[in-house]
């Protein structure tokens, strides 16, 4: 695989485990890149996203009302955490875990992310990662514990 799944310790708690993706060869994770890219213009939204992720991990779990589902292909679990017009795409695993990718600003006059090349690229990236992760879960190379902890059984390079 060309990426690793990394847990974000500060967000994970008793109600859910919060993860992100680090592409092989990259010093930064997708979520770190998302924050860096949007810090200048969307600091307030990022602050709220930070709070939501913290509360999801420690108090509420990853409920669908917070992570809008059906953002990818049918059944792939790709969802979007959105605050205002900022969204970050992710793979939702029930209420017990979420794997966060990247995202961006969705203009109010945009009906779908496909209308924006940059946003579309981020969404498609998450869909591709979700496909690989879902296949690994089916093959039992990734096991999701009852508490949402991800266990890597066999990782093909």
């Amino acid at each position: 695989m060309d990426f690793v799944i990394e847990e974000i310790d500060e967000f994970s708690g008793s109600m859910a485990h919060i993860y992100t993706i680090r592409p092989n060869g990259s010093d930064t994770t997708l979520l770190e890149d998302f924050y860096s890219e949007n810090k200048a213009e969307h600091a307030e939204e990022l602050k709220e996203i930070t709070n939501i992720l913290f509360q999801s991990g420690h108090r509420f779990g990853c409920r669908e009302t917070f992570f809008k589902p059906y953002e990818g292909k049918p059944g792939d679990g790709v969802a979007a955490l959105r605050v205002g017009n900022l969204r970050v795409y992710c793979l939702l695993i029930g209420r017990i875990a979420v794997i966060l990718g990247s995202g961006g600003y969705k203009s109010p006059d945009m009906r779908a992310y496909q209308e924006d090349d940059s946003l579309n690229a981020k969404a498609e990236q998450m869909i591709q990662y979700a496909n690989q992760i879902n296949q690994q879960i089916i093959d039992k190379d990734i096991i999701i514990g009852n508490n949402g902890k991800i266990i890597i059984n066999n990782w093909d390079d």
Binding site: E6, E7, I8, D9, E10, F11, T28, T29, L31, E32, Y35, S36, K39, L46, K47, E48, T50, N51, I52, F54, Q55
Partner: peptide
Amino acid sequence: MKAKGTLAEFISRIDEKSLART
């Protein structure tokens, strides 16, 4: 894994008031 960079900055600035509102 501990967060780094801009993500870590935002995490370090989590405050009780805004957390309560959320």
